[in-house]
Design a protein around this nucleic acid. Structure first.
Lengths: 180, 180
DNA sequence: GTCTTTACGTCAGTCATGTTGACATATATC
DNA sequence: GATATATGTCAACATGACTGACGTAAAGAC
C-alpha cells in the first residue's frame, strides 16, 4: 500500500483536480435536481416546468425572448411547457407596454406558491452547504462557478464590491428584462 | 437610483445569496455540457453516452451496479446506452473474477480516445476557471460543492489533508469498484 | 443439493423534453 | 408600403428517462 517509489507528478495533480471538479459538478447537479423533480411529478410537471417557473418568478415581466436566451432551447420546446403553465393558471401573459408584440410573463398566486415550494428545497440545500463551508468558501465557490460560465452570461451576476447589496436589491425589485 | 431609505435586510441578503447559488449552478451546468454535446452528436450519441464513457474511463473494471448507483437511472435506461457503446466497440465487458455474474466494464482504445476528446473540453473549462479564481477559491468551491452533494456520495471525494495526493493517485490507478 | 437471492439482460409500452422545418399573425421600424 | 421582429403553431422525430414483466446464470444459505 505504501508506495515510496512513486514520485509526485504535478501533471497528475492537475488532472486529478480537474476530474474532481467535473465530478463535483455532476453529483451536485444530480442531487440538486432530484428533490424538486419529485414534487413536480405530483403536478404532472417536469424539470422544464421548474426552470420556467423559477426564472419567471425571479424576473417578473420578462419576455419570451428573455426566457429563451436563458434556457437555450427552441421556442417550440418552450411553447409546450409554457403553454401548459399558462393553461393551468400558474403563469399569466400580458402584452408589452412599449412593444405590444411581446408577452410579458408573470407568476400567478398559484404559480408563486409552487415556485416557493420547489425552490425552498434548493435554497435549503444551499443554505446548509454555505453554512458548513463558511463565508470565505462561498466567495471561492462564486469565483470558480462564474469562471465556468460562458462570458456572455457572467454579467447576470453582479460583482460584489461595496454597495453590492443595494444593487442586488434594486435588481431584484425592478428586474430589467433586457438585462436578462 | 440612490435609495437612502432602504434599510439593509439580512434576510434579503440571505435570499439573494441563495438564489445566486441556484443560478450559478444552472448556468454552469448548462454551459459545461454544451460543448461535449456537440461532439457527441457527430457520433450519434447523447449526454447519457458521455456519462457512461466518463465513469467507465475513470473507473476501469467497474460493474454495471456501480454505474447504476452513480447515474441513478434504471437498468433499462442504462442498457440501451451501454449496449450501443459495447456494440460499436467503445466499451468491453468481461466476467468478474470473484463473481462471474458481474460484467466488468472497460474502455477500448476507441473508447479511450473518445473519452479524451470529450473530457478535454470540460477539463479545459475547469482549468481556466481554477486559474482565474486561484487556489484558495478552488478550496472554497470544493467545500461548497461537497456540501451540496448527498451525504451518501461524499465519500467519493477524499478529503485533502497531507498525503491526499498519494491516496488519490493510488485510487486512480487501482480503483475499488465497491467504493464507487 | 435444493432453495433463494443477486447481477444482469431483455421486451414492450409510455412519457418528458429536446430537435428541425414550415407557415401564420401582429406589430414595429425603415 | 415593405421589411424585420416577437411570438405562436402544426407536424414529425430523437433521446433518455420511466414502469412492469419475465429470463438466465451464478452465488450464497440451509
Amino acid at each position: 500500500m505504501t508506495d515510496v517509489k512513486t514520485p509526485i507528478n504535478p501533471l497528475f495533480l492537475r488532472e486529478e483536480e480537474l476530474r474532481q471538479g467535473i465530478e463535483l459538478l455532476f453529483f451536485a447537479y444530480r442531487d440538486f435536481t432530484a428533490e424538486p423533480d419529485a414534487i413536480l411529478a405530483a403536478y404532472g410537471f417536469g424539470r422544464a416546468h421548474h426552470r420556467v417557473i423559477y426564472f419567471v418568478g425571479r424576473n417578473p415581466g420578462m419576455t419570451v425572448s428573455d426566457l429563451l436566451a436563458i434556457l437555450r432551447i427552441t421556442k417550440q420546446s418552450l411553447s409546450r411547457v409554457l403553454g401548459q403553465l399558462v393553461d393551468e393558471g400558474f403563469i399569466t401573459q400580458r402584452p408589452g407596454v412599449h412593444d405590444r408584440r411581446q408577452r410579458l410573463l408573470e407568476l400567478t398566486e398559484k404559480g408563486t406558491e409552487l415556485e416557493r415550494q420547489l425552490t425552498e428545497r434548493q435554497r435549503a440545500r444551499f443554505a446548509r452547504a454555505y453554512r458548513e463551508a463558511g463565508a470565505e468558501a462561498v466567495e471561492g465557490f462564486r469565483k470558480v462557478m462564474l469562471g465556468l460560465i460562458d462570458e456572455a452570461d457572467r454579467s447576470r451576476f453582479p460583482s460584489r464590491g461595496p454597495g453590492w447589496l443595494r444593487q442586488a436589491r434594486v435588481a431584484s425589485e425592478r428586474p430589467v428584462a433586457g438585462h436578462l
